[in-house]
Amino acid sequence: MSRRFAPVLGAAVMALVAASPAAAQTEAPDAEPYCVPTDPGLSELSGMTVLDGTVYAIGDSGADDRVARLDSECAVAEWLPNPVDPYDVEELSSFEGSLWLADIGDNDRRRDAVALTRMDPAAGGAGELHRLTYPDGAHDAEALLIGSDGRPVIVTKDGLGTGGVYTADTSVSDLPSPGPTPLRRVADFAPSATTTPGGPPLLDGSRLVTGGGVSADGSMAAVRTYTDLYLWSVRDGDVAAAFDSAPARVVALPPQPQGESIAFTPDDEVLLGSEQGVDTAAALPAVLVLRDVAASTPAGPEATETADSEAPAEPTGSILVPLVAAAASVGVVVVLTLFFVRRLFRSR
């Protein structure tokens, strides 16, 4: 998420009244610090990917003019300049030796086209722009997944948690430059409201998609929110088709100030990155690693059955009391939101 929080905060206030009561999630898996970034250029860490065993990272709007190549301690070994002037890069992926910068942020939903920027890290960051257009108007998005078939998959974060899944009919390697290439909508995705802690204050972080990734062998796709992780089994490299089914597994994530990035290592460990969040005086958050999530997630035909048995169930009983409580507190939330926005912009 870029620094322009106001539109999202407004949606979060509405969500307090409109959303169903939170559903229980599976227990957060054990996480360990993988490394701790120290370069202030990574305070807005929004996208990560692993290419040839090396971790690359990028910030979002205002910090997306370069990509960091990290060493094993998360120190910046090299800054690679973005080969194009970005609008709002929110995600980073990789495919066939190239980095793919997802310039897909659009908080105000006013862009006629979004873009993917190819970057060659072996050539000092040289690359080119590839524009994409949605079939149904502008969308805000922070998640790009590229499967082994090479097709880009963008998951948006529209409305009160309901987003769309969009893909192109060609591999990223064959996208025309500058384009545009039309996208088509292939599925809907609405993260569940959960009680998992984490994310910026005053936001229902469990309902906002903030990042995505695909395992090194292409057999698993992941989408994260600020608080939870959704995993799908992928067949024949077709990530878009995986969204036709319920997730194979949904797990609560360890709390992070503003978790917006996810990447798979070659060993299928899951890396989780976070922006610094609203406390700009704090140290940069550690990149966390989950070592057994992918290996313990069912694949193949078992995926649908597991999703049915493990998916968070809606609570039974009357929802009148939670709704009345939410309605009664919405005025307080509005005041707190305005206070938060003022402090946020004053701190910037």
Rank of each mutant, 00 (worst) to 15 (best):
G277E: 05
R131Y: 11
P201Q: 05
G161L: 06
L323H: 11
T181H: 00
D188K: 12
G127Y: 03
P191E: 08
L271H: 05
A252T: 08
I154G: 07
P33V: 12
R4A: 09
D238A: 14
D217W: 06
P37F: 01
S318C: 08
R69F: 05
G53D: 05
D149Y: 03
F264A: 11
D158G: 15
D149M: 02
V330P: 01
V234A: 03
L338H: 13
R224N: 08
D30G: 12
L284M: 08
P152A: 05
G199M: 03
D106Q: 09
A193P: 01
S177I: 09
T194R: 01
G150M: 06
P315F: 12
S215F: 00
T306F: 14
A28P: 12
L288K: 09
S347N: 15
A24N: 10
T156A: 06
P254L: 01
L99D: 06
P21E: 07
T194A: 06
A307I: 05
G163C: 03
Y166T: 11
Q276T: 11
D106I: 07
R235H: 09
R66C: 09
C35Q: 11
G212S: 12
T304H: 11
A168E: 04
T227Q: 15
Y226S: 13
W100Q: 01
P21A: 12
P29T: 09
A240E: 03
I319C: 07
G205Q: 05
A57L: 05
V289I: 14
L253E: 01
A248M: 06
S94N: 14
L70Y: 04
P135F: 09
L101G: 07
D136G: 09
P197V: 03
